[in-house]
Nucleic acid binder design. Structure first.
Lengths: 181, 181
DNA sequence: TCCAACATAGACAGACCTGTCTGTTATTGT
DNA sequence: ACAATAACAGACAGGTCTGTCTATGTTGGA
């Protein structure tokens, strides 16, 4: 539990990220992760206290990726919001898209007090506040309430793209966004 | 597999429905269901081919409930849509609400070809066509596309009410609906 | 040089999973 | 009365799950 970065640890986290997202958290076992990561079991439990700990690490990683991604957005606040949802629509049409990792994980952890759910909650608070900040910056009349609507839209797009035809979902994003803003 | 209705079968389905929805499909085992239903294991496998078969039955039941619920809606088409989303907001604030059973199940079954996913797909097709029908009836200019937006809204509300503060989610439904329609 | 940290392989425990099977009892329709 | 159906109890098989443990090898820094 000492080193926060090592080749073996990275291999575990990358493998877990790939498998957890593609197949779900409960269906992928520790044995499979360490086998595909080419890591000994003792090494795994050296870096992660438990499987749930790894699940939290997986979601923290996803949250970090998204924070990095939105930092590349530039331009006026409303343009940034549009660009974010454009990106979401594009990613949703990409190969291997299987919905939002946070929503999928939340569906598997029913207890709201579970550490995994707390990571999900943190992500969602961040998203809401990020959107509210942009709206405030743009002089929107109701930043908080509208940020809530954008979160609903985000969830709907992520879920729909993962289950239904993502091309159809993507086609509606522009309209929806224009109506909300 | 003969009788489609019997006290023991009903007890199994009711117990499974309660547990699957509250705690998730993969976390609830067959042993627990038959114990809480007060049913012998042989009886369970007499009525259901497998656990997945029971999961399909659970979701079919939820779909039937929703079909029955919308049949009680009356009045003009747009009023029916408004009433549906009012009801969704109300249910989302109710005790024990844990999101949409179909979305939660889909999150646990990654394979789109799985029978469980097909039940989910059927439900979503029904919902979309139901909304499109009402919009067409109301003379809406773009019934199909708007039905897609309503599905996104529905998903966002269900997901958000299950994870975030459902009261906040509910407060935004009216605005969102007005902007979409 | 030597120690500590990181890594390997893999056995093991104990619990839980789904699904099958044996055998008994009660009910019901003909 | 008799056969079929449904339900009961519970053992059992075979697999998987998480997590612990032993024992060994490698490597880099003081």
């Amino acid at each position: 539990m000492k080193a926060t970065r090592s080749p073996a640890r990275d291999r575990v986290l990358n493998t877990a990220t790939r498998l957890f997202y593609a197949e779900g958290v409960h269906t992928v076992g520790v044995d499979r992760i360490i086998a595909e990561a080419g890591v000994a079991k003792a090494t795994f439990y050296h870096h992660y206290r438990s499987k749930d700990d790894l699940v939290c690490g997986y979601l923290e990683g996803q949250a970090a990726l998204q924070r990095d991604a939105v930092q590349t957005l530039t331009g006026a606040p409303l343009d940034q919001i549009n660009a974010f949802f454009d990106l979401l629509g594009e990613v949703g049409c990409g190969p291997g898209f299987r919905g939002c990792p946070f929503l999928n994980a939340a569906a598997e952890y029913a207890d709201p007090a579970h550490p995994v759910r707390q990571v999900v909650d943190r992500y969602r608070r961040w998203f809401r506040e990020f959107m509210a900040g942009l709206l405030r910056e743009a002089g929107h009349r109701a930043p908080e309430a509208t940020a809530g609507l954008l979160l609903i839209l985000r969830d709907g797009i992520a879920v729909g793209s993962g289950i239904d035809d993502p091309v159809l979902v993507r086609a509606g994003i522009g309209t929806a966004l224009r109506k909300i803003l």
